[in-house]
Amino acid sequence: MATVTLSFTLSDFGWVPLEGLFPRVRFVPTDAGVQGSRLMPDKPVYATVNPTTGAGTVTLSTTHDILPSGVGYRIQIDWLMNPADPEPKYWAEWPQVLYLVPGVTDLGQILGKEVRNDMVYVGADADRSDLWTGFQYNPVTGNIYQRIG
């Protein structure tokens, strides 16, 4: 069991930070979980975001060894349009669940990649260590590989 500190940059599609809009980025677990002897509720974890540059960081538990299998994070972002009104008016959510493995430090390294331990990759190149699935099966050799860590 481990935690990782992820870094990212928050901006609009013109690569402009959301300065003055007080953005919040939260990582919401998809379920309560157990990691070793640690019992964790599905309470959101908020990232720290620099309002001028958009640079952000968040420290989260890895998900490859959380029970029940398949627990990950939903990434949610909200921001203000008027600082005088404290309620967020706009929000966005990353459309996929985020799964984390040890050693990942940049959010761009992992978004869009499957890292659940109950997934199986099948292919003639199934001994590749860069595939983040739990098991790999090579139908040519008959070998089964398990990702560790």
Rank of each mutant, 00 (worst) to 15 (best):
T30M: 14
T105G: 06
L18S: 03
D42P: 06
V97K: 02
E93Q: 14
S61Y: 12
Y46F: 13
K89Q: 15
W132I: 00
S129Q: 11
V25G: 07
M81S: 14
Q76T: 01
V115M: 08
R24P: 00
T9C: 07
P41A: 14
I77E: 07
D42T: 04
E19M: 05
I77D: 06
D106T: 02
Q136G: 07
V115R: 14
V140W: 01
Y137H: 12
A124W: 03
G56W: 08
E87L: 14
P41L: 10
T59C: 09
P68S: 05
I75V: 07
D127I: 00
R38T: 07
W94Y: 15
L18M: 13
V4C: 05
I148M: 06
Q76N: 03
G149Q: 15
D78W: 11
Y46W: 08
Q76C: 00
V122C: 07
D106N: 12
L21V: 00
G20F: 06
P29W: 08
D106Q: 13
W79K: 11
T105I: 09
V115H: 13
D130E: 09
T48S: 15
Q146F: 04
V45I: 15
F8D: 13
T9D: 13
P88W: 04
M40A: 12
V71N: 00
A124Y: 05
R147L: 14
W91F: 05
G14K: 15
R128W: 08
T52C: 04
F8T: 12
G134S: 06
T63S: 06
P86A: 15
R147N: 14
Q136H: 12
D31C: 00
R116E: 01
D31G: 03
T9L: 05
T57N: 14
W79L: 12
L6C: 07
L100D: 07
